[in-house]
């Protein structure tokens, strides 16, 4: 069934790498242009969701296992809150990025980068986890899927 949709397969194969690259651009260029962690996370997840839709959920799970998306989910929040705790350990208040580097501006840059990365990781993990969960409901009879849920 999936093998017959050659147009979709070829087009998605061409599109997925630029989508991932664009997600990284939006993530790390959010300080200068529109975008940031939330949008980047969604675009990053969209690339894997597109892969899952075209090449099957089992292949998508082999690329990014469900356990990895759940780890990402927690990791992002930990990175965000951890940045806040780190600034406290350095003598500032919670999420006061001025203490992260030698000058306040450099500290703000580093802090925003870390925090946006945390948001991006959590959002990407959340979107992929939700997609996997919905997809697993549809393919209930498949033994391979049930093993990994």
């Amino acid at each position: 069934m999936m093998h017959q949709k050659s147009v979709l397969r070829v087009v998605s194969k061409l599109l997925i790498p630029p989508i991932l690259l664009f997600a990284l651009y939006v993530q790390f260029h959010g300080d200068f242009g529109p975008g940031g962690g939330f949008q980047a996370g969604v675009i990053f997840a969209a690339a894997f969701i597109l892969y899952g839709l075209i090449f099957g959920i089992a292949n998508a799970r082999r690329t990014v296992p469900a356990s990895a998306t759940r780890t990402m989910l927690a990791l992002g929040v930990l990175l965000y809150a951890g940045t806040g705790v780190w600034t406290m350990l350095l003598g500032g208040e919670f999420l006061d990025y001025n203490y992260l580097a030698s000058t306040p501006i450099a500290g703000q840059h580093l802090g925003i980068l870390l925090v946006e990365l945390g948001v991006g990781i959590t959002v990407a993990g959340a979107m992929m986890s939700i997609f996997y969960t919905f997809a697993a409901q549809t393919l209930d009879g498949d033994e391979d899927i049930e093993e990994e849920v």
Binding site: G30, D31, P34, G76, Y80, L95, I112, V119, T122, V123
Partner: peptide, 29 residues
């Protein structure tokens, strides 16, 4: 010192709010 004011408000001035939003996304998933 970030050119995009939206980013500086979102991640720095209102960092607590964004932490809360991230926690909301986490909780939803």
């Amino acid at each position: 010192g970030v050119p995009n004011i939206v980013t500086s408000v979102l991640a720095s001035y209102r960092g607590y709010d964004t932490l809360g939003e991230t926690a909301v996304v986490f909780t939803a998933a």
